[in-house]
């Protein structure tokens, strides 16, 4: 969902640019809380991984494709503020080197995929983790639902921007229906990839997963009695 140059007028592009720049500046300070010697390298790798998987467009029928956005995945793996930085780097590299997403639309794309997708995906994840069982299934369900929802919400946020500053004069209702509908399907792919990747990382190195801290403490509580039993 990389917005090209030209879809949105200059004021709207500038406004999203200011919003994106402000949030990235804030994230540069907040991410410090999330990053230490062990997790900083994982954050770099996560950005590279998201770049790679974004190249893998999957068919969603009707001659359309979608690809992972990765906002929810990144936020759960390395923390939401770090995710803002990771997604911004991915979008910057794509726009500057690969001409994927416009240059004047960079702020818009960071807003949609770096702020909205990360915020919605991680917010919903946190909400669900609090009410679902504190185990692997509950964790993956929360992440999957967050990832799923992040895609249509980001798509509808584009429609809001389009309503405010779309260059073409087209009824917003029909744009919303088209964009929302197709991105619900793409969201299913987003959820599937997010759950598979998080499941793999959780199996290999649960201690590196930012959003799984509650599982580690639950684990420790469960394991403690076992440790004193004779083998």
């Amino acid at each position: 969902m990389h917005v090209p140059d030209g879809f949105l007028d200059a004021p709207t592009s500038a406004a999203t640019g200011v919003l994106a720049a402000g949030t990235v500046a804030l994230a540069l300070r907040k991410a410090r809380e999330e990053l230490d010697e062990r997790t900083a390298p994982l954050a770099g790798l996560t950005a590279a991984f998201v770049f790679a998987v974004q190249m893998m467009n999957f068919p969603v029928g009707a001659g359309t494709s979608g690809h992972l956005m990765g906002g929810a995945l990144t936020a759960v793996l390395v923390g939401p503020w770090t995710a803002v930085l990771c997604m911004t780097v991915v979008l910057l590299v794509q726009a500057v080197l690969f001409a994927d997403g416009g240059l004047t639309a960079l702020g818009t794309n960071v807003t949609l995929m770096g702020l909205v997708a990360v915020g919605v995906g991680y917010g919903l994840f946190r909400l669900l983790v609090a009410v679902l069982p504190r185990n692997r299934t509950g964790f993956l369900t929360a992440a999957g639902v967050g990832a799923f929802a992040s895609v249509p919400v980001a798509a509808l946020t584009f429609v809001l921007l389009f309503a405010a500053g779309g260059v073409a004069d087209i009824p917003v209702g029909t744009v919303a229906a088209t964009m929302g509908g197709i991105h619900v399907l793409i969201g299913l792919g987003e959820a599937a990839i997010t759950v598979v990747v998080l499941g793999a990382v959780l199996a290999a190195r649960p201690d590196l997963v930012h959003g799984a801290a509650h599982l580690r403490s639950a684990d420790a509580l469960l394991r403690r009695p076992e440790a004193v039993l004779p083998r």
Binding site: A31, L35, D36, A40, G44, L45, A47, A48, L85
Partner: peptide, 13 residues
């Protein structure tokens, strides 16, 4: 992407 994102996160950590 790895170098840029890894560099930023190493600086920020």
């Amino acid at each position: 992407t790895l170098v840029l994102a890894g560099g930023i996160t190493l600086l920020v950590r």
